[in-house]
Amino acid sequence: MDTLITAARVLPRPSAPIDGGAVLVRDGVLAAVGRRDDVAAAAVDPVVHDFPDATVLAGLFNVHVHLSFDATRVMLPNFLASDGASLAHAAGDHLGQLLRSGVTTVRDLGGRTVLKPAGGPRVLASGPPLTVPEGHCHFFGGAVSSDAEIRALVDANAAAGAAVIKVMAGGGQITEGGAEMWESQFSLRQLEIVVAQAARHGLPVAAHAHGADAIAASADAGVSTIEHCTFMSGRGQTDLRPEVARRMAAGGISACSTSSRNWRMMAERMGEDLARRVYGRLPWLEEHGVRLLSGTDAGLPGSTFDDPVGALELYEWLGFSRRRILEIATEDSAAGLGLSAVTGRLEAGLSADVLVVDGDPLAELSALAKPLLVLAQGVPAS
């Protein structure tokens, strides 16, 4: 059955709005996108949804979440105390929150298993990330201590259905006793083994890297995305390296800030000067041609699954135009995940991942917080 969605404006892509536009969905695929009369003429006995004051755009991306975490201050004890069934149930609930807020594509970058939920947003899951013994997020079960173990875990995650391989190239803040955030966990040679073994399965690699050295090694190893990408060199210290950013841009390596709606609280704690320096890496990366991806680290304390707008407002604070922000949250994120031929735009032949919001997000970003209809591969959010 055809579904015809008409609205005040349609954004096939954020740079090309159509006033008085329409979208035609057929069998989970976009059959036509354009002017209302033209699209309506292609419809066959459609169910019509008319939104006279709304905007239709592609579904949003959140390319860095942890579906097994609950976003509370005790998320780690709760995770450690939960069995597989309860974690799967919670993941389903979190996916529902993501979808209802307009997110139709998700990367789950760390859990005990490769989650394969039925329905809801498109999920690209990594399973247990590779880390060192007692290293960052070792509690997921991905600790490796030799080249053979690195290859074996990549193979195991691939066999379990992983869509991406995650490696903890550096330390993190939620694991006591492990490497500091700015310290590396794997050598360049080991990261190259991860990338090569993942490539045997046709899989990209996402590298967790706060430290400038870990970012540089990840870029040299040829990972696909660098998560956090903060260029830390010590506590409260950063070391932006233009040559690394240039290598990332040349190699098509994308960066995900993983900043949630918590950025405002963090900026207040850091103070204006430090906050502008820490978050200023994002416009700096953009200036160097590095593709930016939209992801929030949802599941960590305070990083909820239902507020993509709160996270995207960081870019507005940094001076990004609303058009660029929407591009990062849709077509740029699709490109960074290798999904440009699948989703990220409203174009005939692509998946019907559709978001209808009240108002115009090109005029006010807050319009994204007012979803009226969300379709994931043609199926309405419930």
Rank of each mutant, 00 (worst) to 15 (best):
A88L: 09
G102M: 04
T105I: 01
L98Y: 02
S126Y: 04
D53I: 03
F139C: 00
V123P: 08
F61M: 08
L153I: 08
A43N: 05
L67S: 08
L80K: 15
A40R: 12
P77M: 12
N62S: 13
D53F: 02
R100A: 15
H94G: 09
G28K: 03
A81E: 12
G92D: 14
L124F: 12
D147C: 00
A162T: 11
D70G: 08
D108H: 14
L87N: 02
E149S: 14
V106T: 05
V29G: 03
P46G: 10
S82E: 05
L30E: 08
V103D: 09
A32M: 03
V56W: 00
L130H: 06
T113Y: 12
H49T: 06
G102Y: 05
G111D: 14
E134Q: 13
F61A: 13
D83V: 02
R122L: 14
R35W: 03
N62R: 07
L30M: 06
L95D: 01
P52S: 07
A148Q: 12
A152Y: 04
P117D: 02
A32C: 02
R36Q: 11
G135S: 11
A58P: 04
V39A: 07
T72V: 01
D108C: 00
F51Q: 05
E149T: 04
H94N: 12
R151N: 00
A54T: 03
G135A: 10
P117S: 01
G110W: 00
A143S: 14
L95T: 06
A125R: 08
N157W: 02
A85W: 06
A85N: 11
H64R: 09
N78G: 08
R73A: 15
A58N: 04
A143W: 08
G84Q: 10
A160S: 15
V103F: 06
L57P: 14
A160F: 01
V65L: 07
A85V: 15
V65W: 10
V154Q: 11
D83E: 10
L124R: 15
H94W: 04
G59N: 03
D83N: 13
A58M: 00
S145D: 13
M75G: 00
A160L: 06
A160T: 04
K116H: 14
R151T: 11
G119A: 08
D53R: 15
V144A: 07
H136W: 03
D37F: 00
G110Q: 01
V154F: 07
R122W: 14
P46N: 05
R36T: 12
P133T: 01
T55M: 03
A88R: 09
F61V: 06
N62C: 13
R112M: 03
V33M: 05
G119W: 10
V33K: 06
M75R: 10
P128D: 05
G111A: 15
F51K: 00
D27Y: 01
L57Q: 09
L124V: 14
N62V: 09
D155S: 13
H89Y: 09
V47D: 07
R107G: 01
P121N: 05
P129N: 07
V44Y: 00
D53A: 12
P128W: 01
C137S: 13
R26Y: 08
L95E: 02
V33C: 04
D147G: 07
G110V: 05
D70V: 07
G34E: 04
D50L: 02
R122T: 12
I150M: 11
T104G: 05
R26A: 07
R100M: 05
A152L: 01
R122F: 12
K116E: 14
H64Q: 13
S86T: 15
P77K: 13
G161D: 10
A54F: 03
A81K: 10
